[in-house]
């Protein structure tokens, strides 16, 4: 049997090009090269498949040039004509996970080539793409590569060989992508069995868990912005120089509250970013690029807004658990309310 052809997509970090300072690396195709996590996949493929090409793209480049990057990558994948396409795994890297999902969806829909990717369940790419492509759960850091590689490799072989794919429960990918199959028992029988179990107080398993919708309806608009007190908040990690509260550069365990009474702009000698998930050069040079205190002060002076709230709230949104972010904001929202803040501008990097 001939080997299956695999094309593998990874970011600049896993390709060994560099970290955040290289996140703007444009997409490139390396035919015949196996890089980083590709080595782990290769080891698991044995003689059954080979990675014929690796496609690399910087995370920021992909996010900021999505259409162009997708088109380019689709062209390369088409040329390589693989039996299966693998992206990642992205673990808890948000832009990377989003890129993996987006490129998988494009390859699957435009080229009709089976795809698979992997990432941590809280990666924003998971919610965005798990109902479109096969996304396998991984750990939240690259330490999970050893577990992820065999899972992805095994499933990729299955896809490449056009084997029958079972439900998410059988195969282990994230729930979301639907698979049609014939059940052994018909629906009425299964429903009655489930009902009987429920009545008896036994454990039963629903076949259709309700998705968790957590939408918050929008609040009414501000009637008179020239009288409103507006607060600035950010997930971009802007902090006073030296990061006095030691907010973690990733997976932040706290948020900061900082007084900006009398501060007219955020200058590089007094403020910086603590964020470890994007290239900090531009934010450190002029922190107003993330938290626009200078412009808000101008608007305040000109009477275009009532006033800028004298405190800002900040944390690092880099692999930070959703539960943590929720807790921080729920807490400081109450402080903002108590201080009579009318509206909030939240900036994210």
């Amino acid at each position: 049997m001939s080997k299956l052809r695999v094309v593998h997509y990874i970011n600049q970090f896993f390709a060994g090009i560099g970290g955040e300072e290289k996140a703007d690396t444009p997409a490139e195709l390396r035919v015949g090269e196996v890089l980083g996590p590709g080595m782990a996949l290769k080891a698991n493929f044995g003689d059954n498949a080979e990675i014929v090409a690796t496609i690399i793209c910087g995370d920021s480049y992909f996010a900021e040039n999505m259409d162009k990057a997708k088109e380019q990558i689709i062209g390369w994948v088409k040329e390589q004509n693989p039996d299966v396409f693998i992206a990642g795994p992205a673990f808890n890297a948000g832009r990377y996970g989003t890129a993996c999902g987006a490129i998988c969806e494009a390859v699957q829909n435009k080229l009709n080539i089976p795809v698979v990717t992997g990432m941590y369940i809280e990666n924003p790419g998971a919610d965005m793409y798990k109902n479109k492509v096969y996304v396998f759960p991984t750990k939240d850091s690259a330490a999970g590569m050893r577990e992820a590689a065999p899972v992805l490799a095994k499933f990729a072989l299955k896809l490449g060989n056009h084997e029958k794919i079972g439900s998410s429960k059988v195969e282990g990918f994230m729930e979301g992508k639907r698979i049609n199959f014939f059940a052994e028992k018909r629906g009425s029988e299964r429903a009655v069995e489930m009902l009987l179990k429920k009545i008896k107080g036994e454990k039963f398993e629903t076949e259709y868990p309700m998705p968790e919708f957590d939408k918050v309806p929008p609040n009414p608009a501000i009637k008179d912005i020239t009288k409103a007190t507006i607060a600035l908040c950010t997930s971009g990690g802007i902090v006073p120089k030296g990061n006095p509260d030691h907010i973690e550069s990733s997976n932040a365990l706290k948020y900061g509250e900082y007084d900006i009474t009398g501060v007219m702009e955020l200058t590089s000698d007094k403020y910086e970013t603590a964020h470890g998930g994007y290239d900090p050069v531009y934010a450190n040079e002029r922190p107003d690029r993330v938290l626009p205190v200078d412009v808000m002060r101008d608007l305040e002076k000109e009477g275009k807004i009532g006033k800028l709230h004298n405190k800002f709230y900040t944390t690092v949104g880099n692999g930070t658990a959703v539960a943590s972010a929720k807790k921080y904001a729920a807490e400081y929202a109450q402080k903002l309310k108590a201080d009579g803040v009318d509206a909030v501008i939240m900036t994210s990097t």
Binding site: A63, P218, T315, A329, A330, K337, M346
Partner: peptide, 23 residues
């Protein structure tokens, strides 16, 4: 975080580059 601020009753605008994530 925007949702928690909204939930507290304060109107909030999210300024970000990757809008699909915000959505």
């Amino acid at each position: 975080m925007v949702k928690e601020i909204e939930r507290a009753g304060i109107p909030v605008v999210h300024m970000c580059t990757i809008t699909p994530i915000s959505l």
